[in-house]
């Protein structure tokens, strides 16, 4: 074995392990919170904002950076909307007041 590992293989390693983590963590989510789970995963998939930010910032502005900025704004809707609506929902789950 010689030479560096292809980045694809490293990516695949991370990908497969992350799926396993996700699988085990999500089965432990109580069914009562499945709607907040969806809302919060919406916010988490807003992580595409990271890719969009990178896209919008080459040294020179070009078509790609305009597209990237649009994508940043779209992903930001998800990030803010997702986390805030989850917070709002979770605040509703109360115990009986004594």
């Amino acid at each position: 074995m010689t030479g560096a590992v292809d980045p694809f293989v490293l990516n695949l390693t991370v990908f497969v392990l992350a799926i396993f983590v996700g699988y085990h963590v999500v089965w432990n989510v109580t069914p009562a919170l499945h709607t907040p789970l969806m809302a919060v995963t919406n916010a988490v998939s807003g992580i595409i904002i990271v890719g969009a930010m990178l896209a919008s910032s080459p040294e020179k502005m070009d078509m790609g950076s305009v597209i990237g900025l649009v994508a940043v704004a779209l992903a930001a809707i998800n990030v803010f909307g997702g986390f805030l609506v989850t917070q709002r929902m979770l605040a509703m789950f109360k115990k009986k007041d004594k």
Partner: peptide
């Protein structure tokens, strides 16, 4: 989709977050 873009950009952040969401949706 987010994980796929992460592969393209060699960005682990996108891959991990994308996979978490992907497996969550699949389980649901």
């Amino acid at each position: 989709a987010a994980a796929g873009i992460g592969f393209t950009l060699n960005n682990n952040m996108l891959i991990i977050a994308g996979s978490l969401v992907g497996s969550s949706g699949a389980i649901l």
